[in-house]
Design a protein around this nucleic acid. Structure first.
Lengths: 99, 99
DNA sequence: AAGGTAATATAGGACATACTATATATTTAA
DNA sequence: TTAAATATATAGTATGTCCTATATTACCTT
């Protein structure tokens, strides 16, 4: 992040991906670019695809090959998970945004 | 968190601790209770004290024994780190709070 | 058909966050 | 002064998030 020491902020990747997909379908590269816009750095292939696989394994997302890309969309279970996870997230970190 | 599968939300512990200490000094148990209020579950001793040690090692916080407890307070470096980390956090997750 | 590019995938490793369990230190109660 | 309670600390283990490779797949040129 910066030149001096700051807290490590790894984590929340699958949650953030699921949240993005709750806004609409997307393929892996698009997702990486969306994350880059927020995080400053683009997650590498070895980061994003294992995360997508995990989400797929838990049936929170599904992928459909469309030519060169695989378009992912959120499942009903995924939507429930995103909703509850967001609620938890706000409870956890909500007061950091006040002020 | 819930009864069914949700995204893992581990991470951000040291950031959250540092943010709490930017609001005022606190000892370990108080901190654990503050975190419980937000996360729903109280972090165990084996979770919180290693995190405090790490922050101390990086000179972002300092501890002073006061009788039974050790009261931690943020250092100037810690305050800078908290400020920059919060900025990054908002950039990363800010739009999840809209709506 | 052959080569190049873009997108996806996997192997192997590092590290912070978690846990359980155990140990130590300090205060309070009996 | 033991005993119990509270606070802090550490050892050992597991897992998700990251990385750097490397490999595969599908499309597009030529």
């Amino acid at each position: 992040m910066g030149g001096y020491y700051e807290c490590d902020m790894r984590g929340m990747l699958s949650f953030q991906i699921l949240w993005l997909l709750s806004k609409g379908p997307m393929h892996g590269e698009e997702m990486a670019k969306e994350l880059e816009r927020r995080r400053g750095e683009k997650p590498k292939a070895g980061t994003i695809y294992p995360a997508l696989k995990e989400l797929r394994n838990h049936k929170l997302i599904e992928g459909k090959r469309e030519g060169k890309t695989i378009v992912y969309h959120i499942t009903p279970e995924g939507r429930m998970s995103a909703k509850h996870s967001l609620k938890y997230f706000v409870r956890c970190f909500g007061d950091m945004f006040e002020g």
